[in-house]
């Protein structure tokens, strides 16, 4: 049996220009986020309980190998770096990780951090679960082994409520950084880790991947029809919507699928999404 942790090499403290919002990486503070380190600790804990082996997989640049060796010093049996250019979309990252997890490692349970430190969306675990055909339990705030190969987790819900979830192998879970603190490596293991081997496999860059974003993220512009009317005041009144009755906020209680549809409809109504049939 094998438990795999997926980790992302990211700049944990990039410099952000307060005026322009440009993000500059110095390379000095590169590492794995607290959520990813928690994922490794969870993987180690689960594997200890099951007598399983632990592998760690990182889709990232060669610099990540130093970090992977440190993880080997804390007890990870096997480290694989998937050679992938930075700033790939989540689909491409998951598409590169999935064959490694299934074919190369034959992982039964995959543990990820719930989001990456560099503005990631946290959607890689969901894509992975989809590609691996695995059960998923994402954004967990507590994890424990469930039986011989399952994971029992606690998920945060709105309003301070919690949800207990169980995922059976093959499973992909993602955890918050607060779930566990990564153990410290012994001195002997740290000294030995310098020579540890990191396997490198080529990634699958997404040919459709957008060019790396260089400006801060902003919501898509909304199309607004020009105001009508001959009088400037009329047009300003129309533009500001000063005398227009507003749609009051509404609370809906729906099944998840219907709720998702309602959110999409509303976003379309506001102009943030294209109407159905046209590409987003």
């Amino acid at each position: 049996m094998l438990v795999a942790a997926c980790v992302k090499w990211a700049d944990l403290r990039p410099e952000v220009d307060p005026v322009h919002g440009t993000v500059r990486s110095t390379g000095r503070s590169d590492g794995f986020s607290e959520a990813d380190r928690a994922a490794v600790e969870v993987a180690l804990g689960l594997a200890e309980g099951w007598g399983a082996r632990v592998a760690v997989v990182c889709a990232g640049p060669p610099a990540a190998e130093a970090g992977l060796r440190e993880l080997q010093a804390v007890g990870v049996d096997r480290a694989v770096r998937v050679d992938l250019a930075p700033d790939q979309p989540s689909e491409a990252v998951a598409a590169s990780l999935a064959p490694v997890l299934s074919a190369l490692l034959a992982a039964d349970v995959v543990v990820c951090g719930d989001y990456s430190a560099d503005r990631g969306s946290g959607s890689v675990p969901a894509y992975l679960a989809h590609l691996l055909g695995a059960e998923q339990a994402l954004g967990l705030v507590g994890v424990a082994a469930h039986g011989d190969d399952g994971v029992a987790g606690v998920r945060r819900l709105d309003g301070g409520r919690r949800e207990d979830v169980v995922a059976g192998a093959p499973a992909v879970v993602s955890v918050e950084g607060s779930v566990a603190t990564l153990r410290r490596a012994s001195l002997a293991a740290t000294l030995g880790a310098g020579a540890a081997a990191v396997e490198v496999v080529p990634g699958r860059p997404d040919p459709r991947a957008e060019a790396p974003r260089t400006e801060p993220w902003r919501p898509r512009a909304r199309h607004v029809a020009p105001p009508e009317g001959d009088d400037a005041l009329d047009r300003v009144v129309q533009l500001t919507g000063a005398f227009v009755e507003r749609t009051p906020p509404r609370t809906v209680e729906l099944e998840p699928a219907e709720a998702a549809q309602a959110v999409l409809d509303q976003l379309r109504a506001w102009g943030y999404l294209e109407p159905p049939g046209r590409p987003d």
């Binding site: 410290r184 490596a185 012994s186 001195l187 002997a188």
Partner: peptide, 9 residues
Amino acid sequence: RTDRPDGDL
């Protein structure tokens, strides 16, 4: 002695 487990050198 260091602060690592088994940390004597």
